[in-house]
Design a protein around this nucleic acid. Structure first.
Lengths: 356, 356
DNA sequence: CTGTTAGCGCGTTCAC
DNA sequence: GTGAACGCGCTAACAG
């Protein structure tokens, strides 16, 4: 009743294990067609499957490691993993997952330093636990860090950074194309007739400690302003937000409304801010999109909960997960940043400017 | 530069690999203290770590498999995985994750049958891919099925069902304690003075095809009514909902308001319904909790986005993940259902009944 | 007492 | 077509 081994198959086929191995792996050899036939038949009948643990000792393990510090956070970790699993499966690979108990406070306190050179202890531990299983490569996923420094341990196998970049190590890293999405959002306004009465919520002129905001979103902001600048557009209002969460969105939008500034478009730098803004707009009796169009980023699940649903540029987490696996398995993959487009989810909160 | 092996350590310590193995594993043996010292020192200096792939051939793999059909869904998969990883780490185990491409439509179409006896092909494939790595056990997580039938493949190692139950196989299964939570919600109303003017949104008197609703939530409903019945409480209104999503919550609550039924408490059977209800209440100019207290289930991330924040009974996914791993590793674990309490998250949407 | 050798577990690969 | 070695670690039997 135990799992059949190569030896079992060989015995049944009247061959040696070596012969069966060659046959089942389609190795070039001069084994007779009859022998091949018998071997395959025996394997089939026994339901033989090679033991990967044993095979790993000599060849590839067909296993990839994924280390992350945010599987639990914000629900998006799931999408990233989902994409990676899907892609891995296409090549018969399986994902081994570990989490670092990354203390957000610590990494927030040292934003410029990134991490200490050798990496925190538990991070090294997590990576080592994976390496012990001989993965073919490791995906290093992070949410709170722009400049990751890889622990030495990680360098013994191919590494791809997921949602993170490294300043020191020459590795592949997969990131959302924030800059292009920023540009696209501004361009969308221009193309639809909006040139003034545009308000923006969530800029980061001042330093912040909000751990939920990835440094890469600075590119989002840069993209937005690059298009506005090119078109000579000046914002009616630009509100800094220290934190990108719902209460802040509410408070900021409310402040904006009370200030008396008029605007027809509200560009929110993420969906949670937009959610808060919706609450403030509703309170003020303003209708979306009739009186105010709202545009946002992230495509958080809540974007479709809102009424009207939120038009937003999606963080392409699933596709990022897939790409990370592809890069990991591709020996010719170019080092450096690989940007994944952030697709526009056009929904009810946005409409073209009404003719004057 | 290659990873040091047991042989490397032995050579450096001037011992045989066998001796070093005995020492590093703290096996009872009569090796001298001096030899132990040397072996440990050599291992330390080389940064030796045993190769789990090789070790798996002889002993335990320290690896657990997790198969699921919903990692990607609703963001809660992450919490389940998070809990499992945490618990696994405490015993030095690592998680191997696979996803089945489970077609919701198919399983919805056959609710009574569960799954076909042998399980869908890709599910078996996923399980086999895991088994090839010799895990010590497998966690089988599902979201859309009450009565799972395990593929034969899964029976060669210990199995724990996570968020699923089986009618045919005698296995451990981990479930949220929906019945108790249902009772607790109704009891909370009673204890706070509410005996009438209670409306409920989301009951399931009629059949449904909503794939987002686990059959176990029937217990949630049963729990609620058990307490109401015990206390002779009759609902002012009870609204069926075919789907438990935001638009349905909105439409249902709106219908309720338009019907003219008066209520001081709105008991929603999940947070998405509650979210929709909030929208309808706001439109009608009703304030939460001053005029209507709202109580719900799930503790979806959006529960804290709402204003006021939603009082809700949380699905204890992280703890469920932990428990699944504990049960898997405990040879004495009792078969059958293991229920995890659903803790009350008391927030702003609920307040005791005002004295008359 | 102290430590080693030989063989196992499973699949792959090379020399014959 | 096969025997034997190998990858790595564990353990029963054996030798000093």
């Amino acid at each position: 009743m135990a799992r059949p081994t190569l030896g079992d198959v060989a015995r049944r086929a009247g061959l040696s294990p070596a012969a069966v191995s060659l046959i089942l792996n389609n190795r070039p050899s001069r084994l007779s067609a009859a022998a091949s036939e018998r071997a395959r038949k025996a394997a089939e009948e026994l339901g033989y499957r090679p033991n990967m643990a044993a095979r790993s000792l000599r060849t590839k393990s067909q296993t990839l490691g994924l280390v992350s510090d945010f599987i639990t956070t914000s629900g998006v970790g799931g999408q990233l993993i989902h994409g990676a699993i899907q892609q891995a499966r296409e090549t018969g690979h399986v994902l081994l997952i570990a989490e670092t108990e990354h203390d957000p406070e610590v990494s927030e306190a040292l934003p410029q330093l990134g991490r200490t050179p050798s990496g925190p202890a538990d991070e090294r531990m997590a990576i080592n636990t994976l390496l012990d299983r001989m993965p073919e490569g490791i995906i290093y996923a992070a949410i709170r860090s722009q400049s990751v420094t890889l622990p030495d341990e990680a360098k013994s196998v191919p590494v791809v950074l997921l949602n993170a970049a490294s300043l020191c190590d020459p590795v592949c890293s997969v990131l959302p194309d924030e800059y292009s999405a920023g540009r696209a959002s501004a361009q969308l306004l221009v193309d639809n007739g909006y040139r003034d009465r545009i308000a923006l919520i969530g800029s980061r002129r001042s330093r912040t400690r909000d751990s939920s905001v990835t440094p890469t979103v600075q590119r989002r902001i840069a993209g937005i302003f690059s298009v506005f600048d090119e078109n000579g557009i000046v914002l009616s209002a630009e509100q800094d937000c220290a934190v990108w969460d719902v209460p802040t969105g509410y408070a900021t939008a409310r402040g904006l409304l009370e200030s008396g500034v008029r605007f027809e478009v509200l560009l929110c730098l993420n969906d949670r801010l937009a959610f808060g803004a919706y609450q403030a707009l509703a309170e003020a009796g303003l209708h979306v999109p009739e009186q105010v169009s709202v545009l946002s980023f992230d495509d958080d699940p809540l974007a479709t909960y809102l009424r009207p649903q939120l038009t937003t540029f999606a963080l392409p987490f699933e596709e990022m997960g897939r790409l990370a696996v592809r890069l990991l398995l591709d020996p010719d993959a170019e080092k450096g940043e690989h940007l994944v487009p952030m697709p526009l989810r056009m929904r009810g909160s946005f409409r073209p400017k009404a003719p004057a």
